[in-house]
Amino acid sequence: MLSRVADNLYWMARYLERAEHSARVLAVKLEAMLEQTPEEATEAWVRVVASLMWPLAQPVAGAPDALAYRQTLDRNQPSSVFNSIRLARDNARQVRELISTEMWAQLNTLYLRMHAVDADDEWRAQPVQFLQEVVEELLLFAGVTDSTMRHGEGWHFIQLGRYTERAQAVSRLLDLYFGSQPVDVTQKLSSARYFDWLSLLKQCTAFEAYCKVYTAHIEPAKVAEFLIFDPEFPHSIRFATDRIQEELSHVAPGAGGARRVQAERLAGRLKAQLDYGQVEELLAGDIDGFLQGIQSSCKQIHQSMYDAFIGYGVDELLTA
């Protein structure tokens, strides 16, 4: 597969995952606001939006609604859901002949909807509804991808992109909740705090799945355990890093061992960290450092994958 094409597929998936994560977090937050005092709401907003926005030139400020709009439909906001979808589509267009017609149609339709003149009106009337529908369309795209595209190298690059983005996004989000203030795991939750943790689960589309494992009894330690270490929940960090490791072994089937060893080593180390980690230990120790470590591991894996398969120097291969 052409390196450029692999790069396009990988980035298409990353941008879509980014859009989905943003849209879901914003939708949940807009709804959670109803249960919060204005002060609580504003404080929570700034933190959340800060975790999504890029670039972060100055401190994020502003009314929640305005911030949510900016992060959703603002064309001048590079990290907005609109721009993520646009960039995903730009990448998809360049590999139009490699993805299925159904995938293209699904992505194109979503883009055209976000691009339509009445998108702003739709947003103003029912912002939560709007965001939820975007999430649904993106989930549909993932399903269409799985069932209409050959699960060959290109598909594996798509998965690699999706889970690399997801592992980073979830660990960034968790860091907001666990990294900044010490969490007393034995503490009895006040109702406000309860809603806060509930909303965290929902932002990871994890509430129902959590209940099946732990019942509706929400405890920060259990939330952390579930979102970090659960081996079977698709939005847990462990699930994502498992997939990264798995997908890396499938991409670039013809590439020699020497070229892939660095990325595979990094991915294996990350996986081991999550396979053998324990939440009690983490909460007692440096969870902040742990979550940031995951983010930087993902960046390193990305870089070494890129160096091995996409942007490599041709001289080494010509002489080999």
């Binding site: 052409l2 390196s3 991409v251 670039a252 089937p253 013809g254 070229r259 398969f309 041709v314 291969l317």
Partner: peptide, 9 residues
């Protein structure tokens, strides 16, 4: 002439 692929040139 070569092309760059994920599996090398």
């Amino acid at each position: 002439v070569y092309m760059r692929t994920t599996a090398g040139v």
